[in-house]
């Protein structure tokens, strides 16, 4: 007997029943199809855009992310340049191919050099666009795909993320809802990106004497530029 059949058979023996079928299986199918949400913490419910953005910022700052709000994509080059200057970082940095970054007037800051694509191990700074922000915990949701190499979230020492305020949601469940919708409402199994990263602050470890140290393996710093222009989706 194959290990698979042995294990499945063992489960059924222990549970004193055969393979599930009929109504029971239909119930389970239904549960998957409906994927019900459970208890949602009140703190992330019923907030308007302003409230959600405020909660996102509050939570993100608590976990050592830095936040800057900018009015529109026009302000992004300056914000990036200021950040690089503040930490004495190189003006050349990696940026994902995300089309939203095409709309940024980079030429207004000719000193900034973007290398679009996936990062190389030597890139000190990486720039990405967030799929959405989760206000409940100040978490970024990043999807892998042609425009979004996942390695950008991990290899650079400094990770800058552009996040339109319109993409901030309340709890994690809303983020899943957004993903399910983005994929045209088809069964999520067929359309899950290879990698979905939820990122809640910069990399850290407490493995030596429980003392918190930043930048264990991923970015030492995480900086989010919230773009408040509602016309950007």
């Amino acid at each position: 007997m194959s290990a698979r059949d042995d294990i499945l058979g063992g489960i059924r023996r222990s549970l004193k029943r055969g393979a599930l079928g009929g109504e029971r299986a239909a119930q389970l199918e239904g549960r998957l199809a409906n994927h019900p949400s459970g208890i949602i913490p009140r703190r992330s419910q019923g907030l308007d855009r302003k409230g959600q953005t405020a909660l996102f910022e509050e939570q993100a700052v608590e976990i050592a992310t830095t936040i800057e709000r900018v009015a529109s994509l026009r302000d992004v080059p300056k914000a990036v340049a200021d950040y690089l200057q503040r930490f004495n970082l190189p003006a050349e940095f990696a940026a994902t191919p995300d089309p939203l970054l095409d709309k940024v007037p980079w030429n207004e800051r000719p000193l900034l050099k973007l290398k679009r694509g996936k990062p190389s191990p030597t890139d000190a700074v990486g720039l990405s666009v967030g799929f959405c922000g989760i206000a409940e915990t100040g978490t970024l949701m990043m999807l892998s795909g042609p425009d979004n190499p996942s390695t950008m979230n991990f290899l650079p020492d400094d990770h800058i993320v552009v996040l339109p305020a319109s993409r901030i949601v309340g709890p994690m469940e809303e983020a899943w809802q957004k993903l399910r919708q983005a994929k045209g409402g088809t069964a999520v199994a067929a359309t899950m990106p290879r990698t979905v990263n939820f990122i809640t602050g910069p990399s850290r470890t407490g493995d030596i004497e429980q003392k918190l140290e930043m930048g264990a393996h991923g970015p030492r710093r995480q900086h989010i530029l919230i773009v408040e222009d509602d016309s950007i989706a």
């Binding site: 939570q59 976990i63 191919p97 694509g117 996936k118 409940e136 915990t137 978490t139 892998s144 795909g145 042609p146 190499p149 996942s150 390695t151 899950m192 990106p193 290879r194 990698t195 979905v196 990263n197 939820f198 990122i199 809640t200 602050g201 910069p202 990399s203 850290r204 991923g218």
Partner: peptide
């Protein structure tokens, strides 16, 4: 509230994925 990195992985990289 959340650990820093929570990652959902589904299958290998897709044909069009850069990494």
């Amino acid at each position: 509230d959340m650990s820093v990195y929570t990652t959902f992985s589904t299958g290998p990289r897709r044909a069009e994925d850069p990494d």
